[in-house]
Design a protein around this nucleic acid. Structure first.
Lengths: 208, 208
DNA sequence: TAGTCATATGACTAACTGGTCACATTTTAC
DNA sequence: GTAAAATGTGACCAGTTAGTCATATGACTA
């Protein structure tokens, strides 16, 4: 977590530094992300970084935190489905909201994808906890859906979570690859919605 | 590709070097994998590496090639399903063979996972081609299955490939995490087979 | 024996890294 | 106005890296 010094910084300077740091850590592997490059871009002295944060790891974990909050906040803003929505409608909403958020905050999303997918050179309890919380959120959803009979209860909840998480995780990459020619906003395109619907339908009814 | 010098090396020395290099590149991000560490472990001079290979990238691409051949060769050895097998039986066979191979050659598999998932600091045509070939293999399988009615033809082949590839890719990680306490061979365990069956069943019949 | 040639060597270079610290500057408090 | 506290600075350190190159080795040939 950042030192008080960083939090005392004028809003403008803090935001500028954060954006530059986010970009560096989103564009490079943790070990390749360079503090030197960040301070050069930000036009501040290297020592300042160590007035703001304990060390590189501290900065990185803070950036992960910031990104998480940005995305989570945005997702919670999008209109949630009816309380009466079934499991698959809820899933469909979560899918769309996640991808939408990833487009609204592309750098934050890129950083998080990197943080959660590629292995880091350090262990962090907080970080692992966050992962587990994400999983548990789904576990509950699945368990409920099985109780109400919306979800085939032959399957172990664990496996359902695995399948759903895997697909949600890869879907962002898939769409980004598919629409990499479309520079800006491809969210909301009919084809994107159709893709969501198709994945949901496959999950619901199977391939056969 | 390696220089003639490397191919002239006595079998024993060549294998020793390869294994050490494989391990280094499987355990570390490309940029963090260290030629210096490799030569230290192998007990040879640094200059020798550059007698064997053009540069770091050349060595890495060769290691990817070696790994691919090791795994592919092993997969082709496992008894293929009946020619009369349907799409899902074929899928089930491919799943199991892939995971089996990944356990027989864990280091090679780890290297390939790294190579294909995390972004590399260089572009390589050969590499990209190999990826496309893998995808096309599935495309054909899916197209055939749709023609013979084993696979719902509402779905775009592209989407089916996406779903199947995503799950196959993640399944290795999932199982490794699940059985990380079991040190050695968890392949063949009834629970592993049950997991395959469950994933296939979900794909086939859906979650609802 | 002398000469050739593929191979092996490791000190060296230039470029980077995260992190430190004595000092300079600015802001705050009295 | 002055002292004290907070913040900013960048030269510097010890470490890392990929890659080079003049030199040494030793097997083979004539």
């Amino acid at each position: 977590m950042p030192k008080q010094t960083f939090l005392n910084l004028p809003e403008e300077k803090r935001a500028a530094f954060l954006n530059i740091a986010l970009d560096e850590f989103a564009s490079n592997e943790y070990n390749r992300a360079s503090i030197t490059k960040i301070v050069e871009k930000a036009g501040i002295a290297k020592g300042s970084v160590y007035q703001y944060f304990q060390d590189k790891q501290d900065l990185f974990l803070y950036l992960v935190d910031v990104s998480n909050q940005a995305l989570m906040g945005f997702i919670q803003q999008t209109p949630p489905p009816d309380p009466s929505a079934d499991f698959f409608q809820t899933l469909r909403w979560q899918m769309s909201a996640t991808v939408l958020a990833a487009q609204r905050f592309p750098v934050h999303a890129k950083l998080l994808r990197r943080a959660y997918s590629s292995p880091l050179p350090f262990q962090d309890e907080v970080f692992e906890k966050a992962k587990q919380v994400r999983d548990q959120h789904f576990q509950v959803l699945v368990a409920q859906a099985q109780l109400t009979g919306q979800l085939d209860s032959r399957y172990r909840p664990e496996m359902v979570v695995f399948v759903v998480q895997s697909l949600m995780g890869e879907l962002g990459n898939f769409l980004q690859g598919k629409f990499k020619d479309h520079p800006g906003n491809w969210v909301g395109l009919p084809e994107v919605d159709a893709t969501f619907d198709e994945v949901i339908e496959i999950l619901k009814s199977g391939l056969a």
